[in-house]
Simulated assay, not measured.
Amino acid sequence: MTTVSPTPFDPGFPADPYSRLAPFREGCPVARVTTPAGRPVWMITRDEDVRDAFLDPRLSMRGGRTDPYPPTRRALDITLVGHDPPHHTRLRRLAAPWLTPARVEAYRPAVETAAAELLDAAGRDDPADLMRFAHAFSFQSMCALLGVPAADRPWLYVCAESVFARPIRDRDRVQANLDRLDAYFREQVARRAGPRRAEPGDDVISAVVAAWEPGGAVGRDEVVSLCATLLLAGYESTAQMIGMSMAALLARPELLAALRAGPGTLPHAVEELLRFQTPGPFGTMRTASEDVLVGGTVIPAGGRVLLSIAAANRDPARHADPDVLDLGRATATRHLTFGLGTHFCLGSALARMELTVALRAILTRYPRITPVVAPDGLAWRGNHLNRGLAELPVRLHG
C-alpha cells in the first residue's frame, strides 16, 4: 500500500487539493487524518465509496441524534444541513419546489441583466478583477430569486462579503454582521407571515413562508435560517465557481476559442468545469451513528467523517484522464460537486444557470480577455472546507 502523509491539509491545500488528495485515494482511500484544527477525522476519497457514503443514513449530520438543538442566539447558527430526515425533509420541502430548473429559468432575464450591467462596470478597470464581478453577480442573482428589495442590497452585500472574507481580520465585525443578517431575515419572514400572508409575492422567501405552517414541526427560527442560508450559501460558492472556471479557461486559450466557436456546447462544458474545480473539497461533516464498513475499513460509531468531493471528481476509476479539462467529456455529468442523496444541493439548478449566464456573458462581451497573472501565480484563500480565489486579474480588452 502506498505510504501517505498524516494529513493533506498543508498551506497549499486551497490552491491545489487534488495532488494532495490523490495519494490517499490511490493508497489509503479511507484514512484517519487530522484537520488543521487538530481534530481526528475519517476521510473518504474514492468515487465509489464517496457515493455510497452520501447515501448511507448511518453517516448522519447529527450522529443519529433526534433531540432538538439547544436554543441559539441567532437563527443562522443552525442551518438546513445540520438536520437529518425526517426533519431535514420537512425543511427542504419548503424551498425545493421553487428551486427546480423550470422555476429557476424564470429568473434568467434578471440574471442576464445583472451580468451585463456588472460587466459593463468591470470594463472600465484595467486590469479588472473578475472575482469582484463574480461576487457582485452571484449576490444580485440570489437577491432577485429571494425577493430582496434593491434598497437593501448594498448593505446586505457588505455583510455577506465580511462573513466570507478570509483570513478573518475583525471577528467582532463578522459577528455584528451576522447579527444584522439574522435580524434582517427575521423581519422579512415576519412581514411575509403577517396579515398579507394570503397574498404571497412571487419570490422564494414569500413562497417558503407561504408553505410554512406556524406552530407546526418547523419553527420560525428554522424558516429564518433557511432563507438566510439560501442567500449566503449560494452567494459565495457560485462566485468562486465562476472564478475558478474562468481561471481554468484562461489557462487554456484553445478551450476559450472552442466555446466561442460553439456556444451551444456551454451547458455541457459547465458540467465538466464543475467536475474539474470545486469550491467545496468536502461535503458537510458527518458522524457515524454506528460502526460503518467503508471500502474494507470500519469507521467506528461516533467517528467524524469527511467525504472528499474533490478527490472523487478526479478519480480515474470514474473519469479517464481526470486531471485533464475536457469540455466534451462523456462522464462530465457524473461529478459530485452538488453532493448526492438527501442533502443534494438545493440550489444546483440556480448555480448551473448562473454559471452558464456568467461565462457566456464574459466570452461574448470581452472576446479578447487575457489573464494578467500566470496560473501558478494566482492567490488562493480559504481552508480544507471552503476554498477560492482571492482575486482574478484580467485585461478585458486584450
Rank of each mutant, 00 (worst) to 15 (best):
D170R: 05
R20I: 04
E105K: 14
V4S: 06
L396R: 06
T356G: 05
V208Y: 08
P267H: 07
R173T: 01
A102I: 00
D182R: 11
G377A: 07
F9P: 04
A31R: 01
A37E: 15
R166Y: 11
A351N: 04
A150R: 15
M1R: 13
A114P: 01
T100P: 02
T66W: 08
I242E: 07
M285E: 14
V81Y: 10
D10T: 05
G123T: 11
Y184H: 06
A361M: 09
G264F: 08
H335M: 10
T331F: 12
G38P: 12
P127N: 12
G147R: 05
F344W: 00
C143D: 14
R387C: 12
L21V: 02
F139C: 09
T331I: 10
A251P: 07
D326S: 00
T331N: 14
T342N: 11
E112L: 03
A190N: 00
R360Q: 09
S308F: 13
T364Q: 02
C227W: 06
E105I: 08
A31W: 03
A114K: 06
W212N: 01
E290G: 15
F338E: 13
F139Q: 12
Q240E: 12
P300G: 10
F133S: 08
V30S: 12
G38S: 06
D77V: 07
R220F: 12
A374S: 14
S19G: 11
A332G: 07
V41P: 15
T7N: 07
P109Q: 10
G63T: 08
F282M: 10
T3W: 14
A217N: 01
P393C: 04
D16V: 04
A121Q: 14
R173S: 09
A228P: 00
L119M: 10
D47Y: 15
V305L: 08
R20G: 04
L130A: 09
C345R: 14
L145A: 07
V41E: 09
A233H: 12
L94K: 04
D10P: 02
R25W: 01
V218I: 07
R314C: 13
E354H: 02
S289G: 15
T66I: 12
E117Y: 00
R186L: 05
E105T: 15
T100M: 06
G215Y: 12
R32Y: 13
G82R: 02
H87E: 02
L392S: 05
L363F: 03
A190V: 00
L327Y: 12
F13R: 01
R39H: 13
E222T: 00
Y18C: 11
P316Y: 05
A150F: 13
